[in-house]
Write a protein that binds this DNA or RNA. Sequence first.
DNA 1: TTCTAATCGAGACGGTACGTCCCGTCTTGCC
DNA 2: GGCAAGACGGGACGTACCGTCTCGATTAGAA
Lengths: 211, 211, 211, 211
Amino acid sequence: MERNRSVPSILCGMPRKREPAGAAVLQESVTSAITTALFDELAETGYARTSVDAVARRAGVGKAAVYRRWPSKQAMLLDLLETAVRRNVPEVPDSGSLAGDVRGFLDVIVAQVADPRIKRIALDMAAETTRSPDLGAALRETVAGPRRAAAATVLSRGVERGELPADIDRELGLDLLISPLLGRLLLIGGPVDDAYLTRLTTVIVAGLTSA
Amino acid sequence: MERNRSVPSILCGMPRKREPAGAAVLQESVTSAITTALFDELAETGYARTSVDAVARRAGVGKAAVYRRWPSKQAMLLDLLETAVRRNVPEVPDSGSLAGDVRGFLDVIVAQVADPRIKRIALDMAAETTRSPDLGAALRETVAGPRRAAAATVLSRGVERGELPADIDRELGLDLLISPLLGRLLLIGGPVDDAYLTRLTTVIVAGLTSA
Amino acid sequence: MERNRSVPSILCGMPRKREPAGAAVLQESVTSAITTALFDELAETGYARTSVDAVARRAGVGKAAVYRRWPSKQAMLLDLLETAVRRNVPEVPDSGSLAGDVRGFLDVIVAQVADPRIKRIALDMAAETTRSPDLGAALRETVAGPRRAAAATVLSRGVERGELPADIDRELGLDLLISPLLGRLLLIGGPVDDAYLTRLTTVIVAGLTSA
Amino acid sequence: MERNRSVPSILCGMPRKREPAGAAVLQESVTSAITTALFDELAETGYARTSVDAVARRAGVGKAAVYRRWPSKQAMLLDLLETAVRRNVPEVPDSGSLAGDVRGFLDVIVAQVADPRIKRIALDMAAETTRSPDLGAALRETVAGPRRAAAATVLSRGVERGELPADIDRELGLDLLISPLLGRLLLIGGPVDDAYLTRLTTVIVAGLTSA
DNA sequence: TTCTAATCGAGACGGTACGTCCCGTCTTGCC
DNA sequence: GGCAAGACGGGACGTACCGTCTCGATTAGAA
């Protein structure tokens, strides 16, 4: 039942307790068949048009097997996003300079959103956030949290090195590191190539220094 | 028949040509009843859970009246967004300084996304963009276009005043003006108050100057 | 407005009185276009699937033009049946013998139901009769009445000639003349050729004589 | 799954084969709830105005449950008619005389058409027959067939007893037994009481004898 | 090993919404 | 006023999913 435990409790009606006596256990083969089918279905039809029926059919699995693992279509999607995103926890190596660290951080973000499926689900979830505050909180904790922590490290190193003032506005700094790139990647949609990242790094460093 | 003409052709099957002879005409009273009902329904139930049946019922209107105007639920929503967004074309007065113009521009964005319904629909549409490139193009033209134009004006004035280098990277400049705030408003979700905007203005100006 | 006068008042919500003063008049060309289109539509799609919209479209006529003439789809159909049926009022010439008259009467019935469209509408109307007693009465008066009158003439001549007893059961006699053939034509559906009619004439005469 | 098997294949898209493995099965309780609701609805509103929505609502059942059993409203109605009609297969006991057998046969017909719902559906189906030859064939086989067989028995017994000539025209004899009464019951609509049946028996016997 | 309980695929269940079609009425502008 | 065109409110059609529930058959832990 680790599966359901990985979904924040807000998102599940009630995570099963269980395993009392002569119990059976969710078969991993079934779980992974569903996961694969879901990813394929998402890639083909998109989130809004993905149906549980279709996923189960594609996985050669009964619908009940899906609902035994996740309490709803949304929870299933969310769990998927989280897993995919968790697989790539941002880890920004100390490059020795603020500019290097900033560029490293940007590269990590780009790498993570490179998969268009991630982009889709992320946007869908962001949209859903406006309806469900609980979901927003869950996402902020599991998805945004680790990323902001990594960004905070970049800022801290800058302060330690003396490249940034000690009283820098952390909140604004984090936004400056994350938002411009994320906004372009998810909302604006223009190309994000090496040159762009290089110039973006420059202006972010300038911005941070002035903050 | 301005109604359907206002929807980009990609979004409707085919905008009606019409008015051959003694023709009937979509009644404005019905259109506005539907629009009102749709906005109310969106506010109450959210995009995903808004049904055409419910909108028609609330408007005291037959379902056919809806489908006579828009070819699908999606097209209806989209047209709505466009209309709402078009009602508030950004107009940044010349404040005499780059910092003033930047702040003015940020204020306009905040004002437009203030209505949480706009925020919802905007995110839903952004999400849909990842599935339908045509839709993305339409949105970029009608929604993003005017905003980027306003931002471009801010940059131009800065160059004229000598506050910005003449060879400034326009693309990056526009992103810097738009993305950080939009990212926070739509994706990150923290508070955006006067103090935040003031500090954001500072770092943007710093960033632009260095670009 | 003779048109609507021909529909029994039971079938129309309220037959127009009209022609009071500076009145306009329904154009005969439109009426006949509708009639033709209706017949064609019936022949192609059948009663149940015939829609007023389709008839009007085929006639190149506005729907209102139809509803100006008949209060409902059903009334229109009924009026049509009545007209078609009235065009061919049964007229059984005195052949000089009971057997000859009976055969003549049967021939008239066969001729009238020969058109499969008449058969369809007749059955549809019979079916509708079970729901609407008023319609039943109207049909009995305008459709069945004249036919039973013609059959009654056959019986009367037989009595006059002395071929039938004077106290013959008229009701049963009429049924015997009409039902067997009508039942076969409309309900059973087997072939009705000359030989069949000859033999049927024989048994009907035998039956009548014994009544 | 006998339900769908009982519907002639012409009427259903394709009767389900089924029961491959641990399969689900249409629940009899639901089927009978639908059947009851349908009969009630027919009695109240009549065939043409009976809607699947209303039947499902009255049965406390989802619309899908109906469409899982029958492919269309029409097929459902037809299956119903067949079932109702099959429940009462005509069985004419040997009364020892032709007149007695004829009267017995007439009584059976009257009994079967006594339920006005049967009458309605029968006429509706007869009407539909003119549009769909396949339906006509199906009805002739399942509905008319057994009745004509029973009538044939009456004729055979008459021949055996020497009351009828051995070379009697069977086809015409069957028509004479069935059509007059059916015509009156379904098409003409006058009263059919004991006296009427008595006299009708007399003329039919006379007709048969002369055939 | 045997028992036993939760698993499995399959799919029926009550619902809700979809987008289409038609009914009979109403509206608009031309004649 | 009639006319063609067609929008109107209403409501049924048949389809597709949702999330739940029910079947036998299978499988795996506890006794």
